[in-house]
């Protein structure tokens, strides 16, 4: 077969399983290869039929207890956003590479996107919606407004939750320290100087 294989991404070569693969000759002599991402739909379907049951989860979010049945695949992020309609916690990359989903899980800052809810039965979660005391903003929230530590606002919840963690951990002692310990939260608008100033100010307020 007069195939020119050099231009085919090695990608397509030997997977998915051969039974699902087609090798076809296109009209202009181009080579066709099937690329089945993931493969094995058949076995997966069987497995999924059995997993439909769901997993029982009890969590406390911002002081409110919740009990719900979840798919074990659900991250805390998806449970917050899609099940509890707590959308202040943002999905930025869903890969642990941006920090927009930062929450406090049992008091520690974590990426909610890489946290399976089913592994945290009984957990205490604080999200950005639970930081203010009623109408009274937390000093860090107020400082974010004062220092304009955001523009679009999409990373802001994660920045503030991460900032609370940063302060609690004792890593907010200087601007340089804050920068290093806040580098897990990307702000594409580039509001970093305001973020640093806000955390430095709130750190003083919280510690005094």
């Amino acid at each position: 077969m007069p195939e020119e294989t050099s231009h085919i991404p090695p990608a397509a070569a030997a997977f998915p399983p051969v039974s699902r693969r087609e090798v076809l000759q296109a009209t202009a002599g181009a080579v066709a290869l099937a690329a089945l991402p993931g493969g094995a739909a058949d076995s997966a379907a069987a497995a999924e039929a059995g997993a439909a049951a769901g997993h029982s989860l009890r969590i406390t979010v911002n002081g409110h207890a919740h009990e719900l049945a979840i798919d074990p695949r659900q991250s805390i992020l998806d449970v917050l956003r899609e099940r509890l309609n707590l959308t202040g916690t943002k999905k930025g990359c869903n890969q642990g590479a941006c920090g927009a989903c930062t929450i406090l899980l049992n008091g520690q800052r974590v990426n909610a996107c890489l946290t399976l809810a089913a592994m945290h039965d009984g957990a205490e979660i604080t999200t950005i919606e639970g930081v203010a005391q009623g109408e009274a903003l937390h000093p860090l929230q107020a400082a974010f407004i004062e220092h304009d530590g955001f523009q679009c606002g999409y990373c802001t919840g994660g920045q503030i939750m991460s900032g609370l963690g940063c302060i609690a951990e004792g890593h907010a002692g200087s601007p340089a320290e804050i920068k290093a310990w806040m580098s897990g939260n990307i702000c594409r608008c580039g509001a970093y100087p305001g973020i640093v100033a806000a955390i430095a100010q709130a750190n003083k307020a919280v510690r005094s």
């Binding site: 087609e22 296109a26 099937a34 690329a35 991402p37 993931g38 493969g39 739909a41 659900q74």
Partner: peptide, 18 residues
């Protein structure tokens, strides 16, 4: 979302690629 993502990953599409 989990069901949609799973199905999207499993969908087999074949191409005549150039």
């Amino acid at each position: 979302l989990d069901h949609a993502e799973r199905a999207a990953a499993a969908l087999a599409v074949s191409y005549a690629g150039e």
